[in-house]
Amino acid sequence: MFDFQIKAQCPNTNARAGCFVTPHGRVLTPRFMPVGTLGTVKGVSSSQLAETGAQMILANTYHLHLQPGEAVVHAAGGLHKFMGWTGPILTDSGGFQVFSLAQLNKIDDQGVSFRNPRDGSHIHLTPEKAIAIQMALRSDIAMAFDQCPPYQATENDVEDACDRTHHWLERCIETHDQPDQALFGIVQGGCFLHLREKSAQTVASFDLPGIAIGGVSVGEPIKEIHKLVREVAPLLPEDRPRYLMGIGTFREMTIAVANGIDLFDCVLPTRLGRHGAALVRDERWNLKNACFREDYQPLDQTCTCEACTTYSRAYLHHLVRSGELLGLTLLSLHNLTNLIRFTNAIRQSIIEGCFSEDFAPWKSDSKAHHTW
Rank of each mutant, 00 (worst) to 15 (best):
D160F: 01
S205Y: 02
E197S: 14
C172A: 11
R118V: 10
L195Y: 05
C148T: 07
T202H: 13
H167P: 03
P209H: 03
D140F: 08
C162P: 00
I131H: 02
D160M: 06
M135G: 04
C162K: 03
M143Q: 09
N156H: 08
Q181F: 01
K129E: 07
S205H: 06
H226Q: 13
A182I: 08
R138N: 14
H124E: 15
R171F: 05
I225S: 11
F192T: 12
E197A: 14
H122R: 11
A212E: 09
V187G: 10
H167Q: 14
S139F: 00
E159C: 13
S205D: 09
L195T: 07
A200E: 07
C162V: 15
E159R: 15
E170L: 10
V203H: 02
I131A: 00
G185R: 05
I131V: 13
L183D: 06
V216S: 01
C172P: 10
D207N: 15
V216K: 08
C172E: 06
T202Y: 07
H124T: 15
F192S: 03
C172R: 08
Q152K: 05
A161S: 15
Q134L: 00
I225R: 05
E128A: 15
F192I: 14
R196L: 08
H167I: 04
P179Y: 08
I222F: 03
M143L: 13
R164E: 08
